[in-house]
Amino acid sequence: MKITEKNFIEQMKKRNEKALEYVIDNYAWILKTVLKKHLFNLENLYEECMNDCLLAIWNNIHYYNPQKSSFKNWIAGIAKYKSIDYMRKYLKDLENGNIDDIVLASEDNSIKEILSNEISMETKKMLYSLSEEDREIFKKLYFEEKNMNEISKETGLSKSILYNRLSRGKKKMRKNISVKGDYENERL
């Protein structure tokens, strides 16, 4: 069967590897654009991250919903979050590395700072999609690492209300953080 723009998603769902080849041939430029934007000077991570993106597309194609977004936007979102995961892993590796085994150049420190700022900016974008009160709940739980009992006492809200706010907040962040339009017109 010939793979085309009209049938490649259906064929991927049927686990036809030729459909994945079609995605690579026709949509890899989107993944490359996103990876270059988020991984800038970490070229040694591009290939591994690209492979992870393709694997995620292959394994999660059943979750793609054309009514919610275009395929281009969907795969750009996958690439964005995979690249952020790679930045976090890179930063964690830098922080956990044995100082005797690693000689950090000043360039590595500047990359570390750039990556930290990028992750911080992404986190702020996500948090600012919430109300001020919900933002405080998220900060207490995830940044200050307080447990639900402590947060409940500090805010005067019951744990069930806190869980509901967290759940709604996560949904709202997922909905509001979109890559729509960011990558549709960019080609390498």
Rank of each mutant, 00 (worst) to 15 (best):
L45Y: 09
N59T: 10
S70H: 03
M50K: 10
S83G: 01
P66L: 10
A76G: 07
Y86M: 09
N60A: 10
E47F: 06
Q67G: 07
K92T: 10
S70N: 04
D93F: 04
M50E: 14
K92D: 08
K89L: 11
S83Y: 01
E48Y: 10
S70V: 05
I57Q: 05
N60H: 11
Y81A: 02
E43C: 07
N59R: 13
Y81G: 00
K68D: 14
L45F: 10
K68Q: 11
K92L: 13
K72L: 12
K68Y: 11
A56T: 14
N73M: 03
A79I: 04
M87Y: 00
L91Q: 03
I57V: 14
E43Y: 09
M87F: 00
E47I: 14
I61A: 06
N44H: 15
N73D: 12
Y81I: 04
E47W: 02
Y81Q: 05
L94P: 02
L42W: 01
E95P: 01
Y81D: 07
E48D: 15
L91N: 04
E48P: 02
L42I: 12
D52C: 12
L55S: 13
K89V: 11
G77N: 13
Y63L: 15
P66W: 05
I57P: 00
I75Y: 05
H62T: 12
L94A: 10
Y86E: 08
I57M: 08
I57C: 06
N51F: 07
M87Q: 03
K68G: 06
Y64E: 07
K68T: 06
M50W: 11
L91G: 04
K92P: 00
D93L: 05
L91F: 03
D93K: 08
D93V: 02
L42F: 08
L45A: 12
W58F: 07
